[in-house]
Design a protein around this nucleic acid. Structure first.
Length: 492
RNA sequence: GUCUCCCUCGUCUAGUGGUUAGGACAUCGGGUUUUCAUCCCGACAACGCGGGUUCGAUCCCCGCGGGAGAUGCCA
């Protein structure tokens, strides 16, 4: 049997790390087994639905390079793949269950349900959930309610006896007494839309899904779904519940832990291959030592056996490390085009780039790529080129182990050495030697000479390498800034 | 409350009835370097606890503890 798996998100929010991890596992499992990866949009919650979420779903998968074999846009033999477009289908199946006596109409108002819930909490009842008030209405009672225009929901009749077991590839057999299953969950809402339980089971069956890989938060409803498959007389697919992705505090990863939307990571300057690589390693490993995986490699080597049972904490620092690694590996031209938007956003460059800017950009990349964790780091790293904010505080120019007098001397004499060297096209290493010699003459450390020069030129003690900075800035501007710093020290 | 699942360094993980319990991130220290970063070297650091089974348990069994998830006309 050919493997068919699906990612079935609900477009009620931006695609987040947890969701995308599920998508990736499904995708890689399908690819590694020569199967099909199906995308299905579960937009049955009309209150929380948003177009933006749907667009975000497509753009995020696209950014990661994840293509679906069947689904919205591309179509497929079992479409449509958007649940709202399958509206009639669910009603049909729900009513089929009603006819079989396995489901029933319920006319309870939300107010009454709320009241029941409240009482259960107050009385600390062991049983929670619906009290099956409408489980045994007579035909005439149902007709009367319908005649009055009350919109019913359809509830599934959960057996009160026995237990239901399903097999999970990772977890093994998971059983639950039927009486512990939430009593009589709603299958079809009063607005005619199905709930997750119904739509999911119906669609997975109709779309011939072979393996259901979803987050562990669904384990408790596994038995219910099995009951549903059995009620319809359908085969139960294979289950594989994925470990959850947690935040630092061990709770389910959410916004309060930091960014969780993939879009946010993208905006900050994470590369898709870094996200893809790291996210796949959350809850999965090949051998415990291999860390770098390309998408293509994972499409071949991903196995279910490598998936873990226990939840995993999402480590932002490790993601940063991965991103830095991938940035360093990245092609310079690609990096240039990836960095450009950040510099444009900062107002440093025009959109589109002028020819000069484009040329400058490609010279910026090599020194900058060694120093970035995220692409947006390029902005602070190069700001000295685009906005001149001279350091007024003399103390900043003074290196450790030096003093103001030596610094003043280092600055004026060092500037002279530097500028004449640069203008005469002298080797950088030779200029460097002379500056070092100056340091020992002044009786200070090498940095005692370099630091004031660096601060003068880059307006910061932390910068790109000095000669790189000068090359990017140009000799004239370098000279201007050196003279200005020199004056600062001459003033008193 | 009830049900279900989980438990190896701070974090992600490898691993075995007998190992110096391995790797990576983070942290700390050192080296290279004009700063920062990169890069290199090193250090710290784990089998939740208690019973069994066994010549021997991190590994097998039981209990406890801790954590998480579910308990919606959300998915």
């Amino acid at each position: 049997m050919d493997v068919r798996v699906r990612y079935a998100p609900s477009p009620t929010g931006l695609q987040h790390i947890g969701g995308i991890r599920t998508a990736l596992f499904n995708y890689f499992f399908a690819k590694a087994n020569g199967g099909k990866f199906i995308l299905r949009v579960e937009d049955t919650d009309r209150e929380r639905y948003s177009d933006e979420s749907l667009e975000d779903l497509y753009s995020t998968l696209d950014w990661l390079g994840i293509k679906w074999d069947e689904g919205p846009v591309v179509g497929g033999p079992y479409g449509p793949y958007i649940q709202s477009e399958r509206f009639d289908l669910y009603k049909e199946y729900a009513e089929k269950l009603v006819e079989m006596g396995k489901a029933y109409y319920c006319f309870c108002t939300p107010e009454r349900l709320e009241e029941v819930r409240k009482q259960q909490v107050e009385s600390k009842s062991e049983y929670q959930g619906y009290d099956r008030h409408c489980a045994h209405l007579s035909d005439s009672e149902i007709k009367e309610n319908l005649r009055q225009g009350i919109k019913p929901v359809i509830r599934f009749r959960v057996p009160t006896e026995g237990k239901t077991t399903f097999h999970d590839i990772l977890m093994g057999d998971i059983s639950r007494r039927n009486r512990d299953i939430s009593p009589d969950p709603i299958l079809l809402k009063s607005d005619g839309f199905p709930t997750y339980h119904l739509a999911n089971v119906v669609d997975d069956h109709l779309m011939h899904i072979t393996h259901i890989m979803r987050a562990q938060e669904w384990i408790p409803s596994g038995p219910l779904h099995v009951l549903l498959y059995e009620a319809f007389g359908w085969d139960v697919p294979q289950y594989c519940h994925l470990p959850m992705v947690m935040g630092k505090d061990g709770q389910k990863l959410s916004k309060r832990h930091g960014s969780t939307a993939v879009r946010d990571f993208r905006a900050k300057g994470y590369l898709p291959e870094a996200i893809l690589n790291y996210v796949t390693l959350v809850g999965w490993s090949l051998d415990g030592s291999t860390e770098f995986f390309s998408k293509e490699a994972l499409e071949k080597c991903f196995t279910m056996e490598g998936i873990h049972k226990s939840p995993a904490v999402f480590d932002y620092k490790k993601l940063d490390w991965f991103n830095g690694q991938y940035i360093r590996q990245a092609d310079n031209d690609r990096l240039a085009s990836l960095i450009a938007p950040y510099l444009q956003e900062a107002g440093y460059m025009h959109k589109p780039l002028t020819e000069e800017e484009s040329a400058l950009l490609s010279r910026i990349v090599p020194p900058v790529k060694e120093r970035m964790k995220v692409l947006s780091d390029a902005v602070p790293l190069t700001s000295f080129l685009f906005e001149d904010r001279p350091v007024e505080d003399k103390a900043v120019y003074v290196a450790k182990g030096s003093d103001e007098a030596s610094t003043a001397a280092a600055l004026s004499r060092g500037s002279a050495i530097l500028l004449s060297g640069l203008k005469s096209g002298e080797e950088e290493s030779s200029i460097e030697e002379k500056l070092s010699a100056l340091a020992s003459e002044l009786g200070i450390k090498v940095n005692g000479v370099f630091q004031p020069i660096r601060v003068a030129i880059t307006n910061s003690t932390v910068s790109l390498p000095l000669f790189d900075s000068i090359r990017l800035l140009g000799i004239d501007e370098t000279e201007r800034r050196l003279i200005r710093a020199d004056k600062l020290f001459e003033e008193n």
